[in-house]
Simulated scan of single mutants.
Amino acid sequence: MGAYTAEFIGTMIIILFGAGINSGLTLNKTLNQGANWVIVTFGWGFAVMLGVYASAPISGGHLNPALTIAFAIQGTFPWADVLPYIICQTAGAFVGATIVAAHYYIHFKATPKDINTRGIFATGPAIDNPPFNLLSEIIATFAFTFALLLMGINNFADGLNPLIIGFLIVVIGMAFGPTTGYAINPARDLGPRLAYFILPIPNKSGANWNYAWIPIVGPIIGAVLAIGVHTIL
Rank of each mutant, 00 (worst) to 15 (best):
I39V: 15
F17Y: 04
F121R: 05
I165A: 07
G51C: 08
P192W: 05
L160Y: 14
P78M: 09
R193L: 08
I39N: 01
G119Y: 05
I198N: 12
A6Y: 10
I214Q: 11
N154I: 10
F142V: 05
V52R: 02
A91Q: 01
W37N: 01
F46C: 09
G124A: 01
F176I: 06
A101S: 12
T141S: 00
L31A: 15
I21F: 11
D81E: 12
I169T: 10
V229I: 13
A97M: 10
L27A: 14
L168T: 05
Y85K: 05
S59R: 11
V224W: 04
I184G: 04
L83W: 13
I165W: 13
A66T: 12
R188I: 07
P178Q: 00
A47F: 15
G2P: 00
E7Q: 08
N28I: 00
T90N: 10
Q89C: 01
Q89T: 07
A93T: 07
T30S: 10
V40C: 00
I184F: 04
Y182D: 02
L134W: 14
V229K: 01
D114N: 03
A35M: 09
A101C: 04
V171K: 02
G206L: 09
L160Q: 15
L233C: 07
F146P: 01
L16P: 03
